[in-house]
Amino acid sequence: MGQARALMGLSAQLDEELDFREGDVITIIGVPEPGWFEGELEGRRGIFPEGFVELLGPL
């Protein structure tokens, strides 16, 4: 779908969440519900709030 750069780090609180560090580039693979993305980073998949990232182009 597209890519996004992390504006800040996120520590996953639930198993389905993706954790990442500020500056990581995450591949967006879905939008499971409004306000959330599903992404992949370094072979890991999970969901995260859209406010933690900036899109690097259209989805």
Rank of each mutant, 00 (worst) to 15 (best):
I29C: 05
V31K: 09
P58K: 08
G39S: 03
R5V: 12
L14K: 15
P58R: 05
L55N: 02
G35T: 01
L41N: 06
E42R: 14
E40M: 11
L55T: 08
F37P: 00
L10Y: 15
P34Q: 11
I29L: 13
F20W: 03
G46K: 01
D19I: 04
P34Y: 06
F48K: 04
G35W: 01
G35C: 02
G39D: 00
A4H: 02
I47A: 09
W36L: 13
S11I: 13
G35A: 03
P32T: 08
E54Y: 07
V53K: 04
V53M: 01
E50K: 13
E40K: 09
G39F: 01
E42K: 11
E17N: 09
M8F: 11
L18R: 01
R5D: 02
P32V: 08
F52I: 10
E17F: 11
I28R: 02
G39N: 02
V31H: 12
F52S: 14
E38V: 09
S11L: 07
D15A: 12
A6T: 00
V31Q: 15
R21E: 13
A12E: 06
P49L: 04
G30A: 11
E54T: 08
M1H: 08
L18N: 06
G9R: 14
R5C: 05
L7K: 14
L55Y: 08
G39K: 01
L14W: 10
A12F: 02
E16H: 13
Q13R: 13
P34F: 03
A12I: 06
L41V: 12
G46D: 01
W36A: 04
V25N: 05
L55E: 06
I47L: 11
E17V: 11
G43R: 02
L10T: 09
G51E: 11
M1S: 06
E17Q: 13
R45G: 01
A6H: 00
E17R: 12
P34L: 09
E40S: 10
G35I: 01
Q3T: 14
M1K: 10
L14A: 15
L10R: 15
L10E: 00
M1R: 09
R21W: 06
I26A: 02
G2I: 13
I26V: 08
D15L: 08
D24E: 11
L7E: 00
E22A: 11
E54A: 07
D19E: 15
V25R: 09
Q3V: 12
G35V: 00
G51V: 12
F48M: 05
G9V: 05
L7V: 12
E22P: 11
R45H: 09
I47Y: 10
G57K: 12
E38G: 04
R21G: 10
D19F: 11
W36E: 01
P58I: 02
R21S: 14
E54M: 05
E38R: 12
V31E: 10
A12H: 06
G43P: 00
E40P: 01
D19M: 15
W36F: 14
L14E: 14
L59T: 06
E16F: 10
Q3G: 01
P32H: 10
D19A: 14
L59F: 05
T27P: 02
A12W: 03
R45C: 10
L56P: 04
L10K: 15
P32G: 07
R5F: 06
E22D: 06
M1Q: 05
M8R: 15
G23V: 04
I47V: 14
G23E: 05
M8A: 13
P58T: 09
T27H: 09
G51H: 15
G23T: 02
G30L: 04
P32E: 06
G46Q: 01
R45T: 13
V25M: 12
G23A: 06
L41I: 14
V53W: 00
R21Y: 09
M8N: 12
S11V: 13
F37K: 07
E16V: 12
G57F: 08
F20I: 08
I26R: 01
E50Y: 05
D24I: 02
G9T: 15
F48R: 00
L55K: 02
R5L: 09
A4S: 03
L14H: 15
V25C: 08
E38F: 11
I26S: 03
E16G: 14
E42N: 15
I47N: 07
V31R: 15
A12T: 15
G46L: 04
F37C: 03
I26E: 02
R21K: 14
G9Y: 04
A12C: 08
L41A: 01
T27Y: 07
A4W: 00
G43W: 00
L56Q: 10
L56H: 05
L7Y: 04
F48E: 04
Q3W: 06
G2S: 12
D15P: 15
T27Q: 13
S11D: 15
F52A: 15
F20A: 04
T27M: 05
A6I: 06
D15N: 07
L18C: 03
L59N: 13
G35Q: 02
A6C: 05
G57M: 11
G46M: 03
